[in-house]
Write a protein that binds this DNA or RNA. Structure first.
Length: 294
DNA sequence: TCATGTCAAGGCGTC
DNA sequence: GACGCCTTGACATGA
């Protein structure tokens, strides 16, 4: 089981998601920002290797404004060599990565222009992984989207939009259950109509479910990953004071232990969505080693 | 240099 | 209909 964290490494103090204001856009600023982001990404991957961490979420902000109409620069060809080198490092060190576009990526929007912009955003994510030279087990995860007062219709719109996606996106796309709208059952319904793998978020599932235990939920999502590599799972401890779904500052091992007991014998990769990122991963890995030794 | 307001983008819930 | 929230960091401005 690989355990990973998203986007930035707080110990190193470098960000691979530097950006700039749209109003400041220039080719020069874009190139400088992306170069800095790729430098940081390489530093983070090396740090991860030194600490035995082989799962990482690359920031969607690596190429700022990549799918925005303002982008007139051929970033794909300009950074192809650089991305290829980084991707080779990922492959050589048996790492796995994923990407998670933000809440504005909505394949099932009732507005066609939103769907088109979302597809453009997903195309950027697929380009990035393709230029890294990574196979289709390296995924792009999104939420299903909005309900618009009619969930069955919203699911149908998702299925239709999915069928329209170009193959480079479709082979990497996975959907995640959320804490308010589309729960495990909904995502499994979409899987049955599209074949898209279901990424289980354990915290969202604990908040929004139809009575399935964690064991049942894991058993249900597992077969959706056949042919896509080990299932990816998102885990976070609930923030003790903030609203349901808010991520904790650091991993709570008492809360993690029962989840680990469910996961440890399964072929899965676990992404920790916790504020202190790599610190919690190291805690979780140490905790797991102790448990295995017992 | 530092504090603070703002940022490309959508949808939902509350008032 | 307006607005805050999501999730979040990081930019950009003004003092």
């Amino acid at each position: 089981m690989r355990i990973g964290y998203p986007c930035s490494n707080l110990t190193l103090g470098v960000s691979a998601a530097r950006t700039f204001r749209l109003a400041s856009y220039s080719t020069d600023l874009l190139v400088r920002t992306v170069e800095a982001n790729l430098d940081a990404l390489q530093d983070i991957l090396r740090w991860n290797d030194r600490h035995g961490i082989r799962f990482f979420r690359i920031s969607s902000g690596t190429i700022p404004f990549a799918s925005h109409p303002v982008m007139a620069y051929p970033w794909q060809s300009h950074f192809a060599d650089r991305l290829s080198i980084i991707g080779r490092y990922i492959v050589d060190h048996e790492m796995r990565v994923n990407l998670h576009p933000g809440q504005y990526t909505l394949l099932n929007s009732i507005r066609e222009e939103v769907v088109e912009k979302s597809i453009a955003e997903l195309a950027y994510h697929a380009d990035l992984l393709d230029l890294l030279g990574l196979d289709a087990t390296n995924k792009i995860q999104i939420h299903v989207g909005g309900v618009y007062g009619d969930k069955p219709a919203a699911i149908v719109r998702f299925v239709v939009a999915y069928s329209r996606l170009p193959e480079p996106i479709r082979r990497r796309l996975v959907i995640e259950n959320d804490e308010r709208q589309f729960n495990l059952v909904d995502t499994l319904t979409i899987h049955s109509r599209t074949g898209v793998p279901v990424l289980l978020d354990t915290l969202h599932h604990s908040i929004h479910n139809e009575g399935e235990t964690l064991t049942e939920a894991l058993d249900a999502v597992k077969p959706t990953w056949d042919g896509h590599g080990p299932a990816m799972i998102d885990y976070s401890s609930q923030h003790p004071e903030r609203r349901g779904g808010a991520h904790a500052a650091s991993i709570v091992l008492d809360d993690f232990e029962p989840v680990l007991n469910e996961l440890r014998w399964r072929d899965i990769d676990l992404m920790l969505e916790i504020k202190d990122k790599e610190t919690s991963v190291l805690k979780a890995m140490e905790f797991m080693q102790v448990r295995i030794a017992q």
